[in-house]
Amino acid sequence: MSASADHLKALLSAHAAGDDDRFYSVALQVAAKSARQGHGRLAAELRELIDTSRAEKISRRPAPTPVVQPRGELASLLTADYPETRLADMTLADETRAALEKVLHEQRQRGRLERFGFTPVHRLLLSGPPGTGKSMTAAALAKELGLPLFTIRLDGLISRFMGETASKLRLVFDAAAQTRAVYLFDEFDALGADRANGNDVGEARRILNSFLLFLDQAPAESLVVAATNHRRLLDGALFRRFDLAIVYGQPSAEQSIEVLQRRLAAMDTSGVAWGCLAALTEQLSHAELVKAAEAAAKRAILGGSDTIDADQLRGALNERHLLRHA
């Protein structure tokens, strides 16, 4: 039996309380446990049932308010999307998941907090190596809250005429005040570099000062998420302005195996001795592990099989290591 007694109790408790989010989260944990135990087909069937049930429930709920695609100058600054990734789909450290669940809880209880004069967490700083889930986190938060994800295009925001950048920043934050959404500043160090940097220029400092001012005034209805691979480059004042700073790291051996198992849930992995692959997952990011799993799966499928063996995974993981050092 893949579900533990604790899982069964949690499922019944969530069902009794009418807490669909908790129910599906536990159900996905059961599917993940099935995958870890080598029951790939069962895990895939459970995920399919969960997705079908979710889709039916969502179809009966009011759809998110349609958001007009950015027009005019905003069209060169923002890209809009409705993501499908959920928090339960991500492999995260326990403390990271707890922090993100806190954000969701406060946002869902925003009205109650505001009645007492408090605002929910709505300004997040995510930092860590590439491929560790920062941008995916913004997508998952948008999906969980039924909001669009607006990604700020820094190539459009940062003008060669640097005096224009502050006015473009104002446009973005004005949009955040008018349209509730998740606003993602990816590769944020391009904007938030330390003002004390000797190579900096006065205009760049003024741009950062403008960002800090706009961030202070950002409405609690929208989430402003800044993601960077280079935390050390950021100006110290930024850390005081964000409500929450989350540091992402490379996955542990156990998390790495979970990433592989999640991506290969539709394949038969019952013959894989996962423990033997742990050493090969070291130093690989979540994104690199996903690519390795996909490479192994495609080789098997194109070879006429739905079965993955350890040698195929070992070869795919070795390829990712070679690419890292190319």
Rank of each mutant, 00 (worst) to 15 (best):
R60C: 13
G315E: 13
V68S: 13
L302V: 14
Q261N: 07
A220H: 04
T151F: 03
E203L: 06
I152R: 08
K9A: 13
G271L: 15
V68A: 14
D189T: 00
V103G: 05
E294L: 05
I152S: 11
D235Y: 03
T132H: 01
R180L: 06
L147D: 08
L208T: 02
D19W: 03
R299I: 10
G303P: 00
K143A: 08
S76W: 10
I58C: 11
L302G: 06
E45P: 11
D20H: 12
E101S: 10
V103K: 04
A175Q: 15
K291Y: 14
L147A: 00
D6G: 12
L124I: 03
G304K: 10
Q178F: 09
T281S: 00
S34C: 02
L244H: 06
S305H: 04
Y82C: 08
S210P: 02
A279L: 13
A190D: 00
C276E: 15
A273S: 12
T119M: 14
D19Q: 07
L12F: 12
A226W: 02
L42F: 06
T137V: 03
Q283E: 05
F211W: 02
Y183F: 03
L42P: 11
E294V: 15
D311A: 13
V67W: 12
M90K: 07
F118C: 13
Y82A: 11
E164K: 04
N199D: 08
